[in-house]
Amino acid sequence: MKWGVVLLPLALAMTGCATVSEINESLPTMSVISGKKPLEYAHCLSEKLADSRGALQIEPQKDGVRVIVAQKYSSGPAAVFDIENRASGSSIKLHERISNVPIRPHDVRNAATECISG
């Protein structure tokens, strides 16, 4: 328990604020294909993350949608989903703000995985 008290503030201090474009410049932490269409996948994310992250920002893009997930404990974006339309579903790339911090919340990644199929 003591390590959690020490590591959490340290991890939060290291992360700082990031913009959507800065997050999108990082390598994707997940790149998958789903049988769901972009809006269907975005709706699934909204349902899965409603309790932990609140409303997601969904922006139409040329070939799909971009979903911006808010940070859990402060303002600003935490993750960006680029969801592009494909002939039989969509391709999904997840970019996370603190992708190199192992003790980050995993609710976004879990929701992304759960929404791939089903």
Score class of each variant (00 low, 15 high):
M30E: 14
G118F: 12
Q71D: 10
S31W: 11
S75R: 04
N24D: 05
Q57K: 13
V65F: 02
L12P: 00
T29W: 00
K93E: 06
K36T: 05
E96P: 12
T15E: 09
C17H: 07
R104N: 07
P77T: 02
K36P: 00
E47H: 14
K72R: 09
P28V: 04
P60I: 02
E59W: 01
S75K: 05
L27Y: 06
Q71K: 04
L56M: 10
L56I: 06
N110E: 12
S31A: 12
S117Y: 13
M30C: 07
I103W: 15
R109W: 13
P77Q: 03
G76D: 01
D82V: 06
L12I: 09
G64R: 02
S34V: 03
I58G: 06
P77A: 02
E96S: 08
W3M: 10
D51G: 15
K62T: 11
C115G: 11
D107R: 04
G89T: 03
T19R: 00
N100D: 10
D51S: 14
P105A: 02
D51T: 10
A11M: 11
V20P: 12
Q57M: 15
V32M: 09
A87I: 09
I33K: 10
L49G: 12
W3L: 05
G64V: 03
D63S: 08
G16M: 08
I68F: 00
S46N: 08
K62E: 10
V5Y: 07
A55K: 08
H43L: 11
T19D: 09
C115F: 05
A79W: 01
A87C: 08
I23S: 01
P28F: 03
S99V: 06
G64D: 01
C44W: 04
M14P: 00
L45S: 02
L27P: 08
L49D: 14
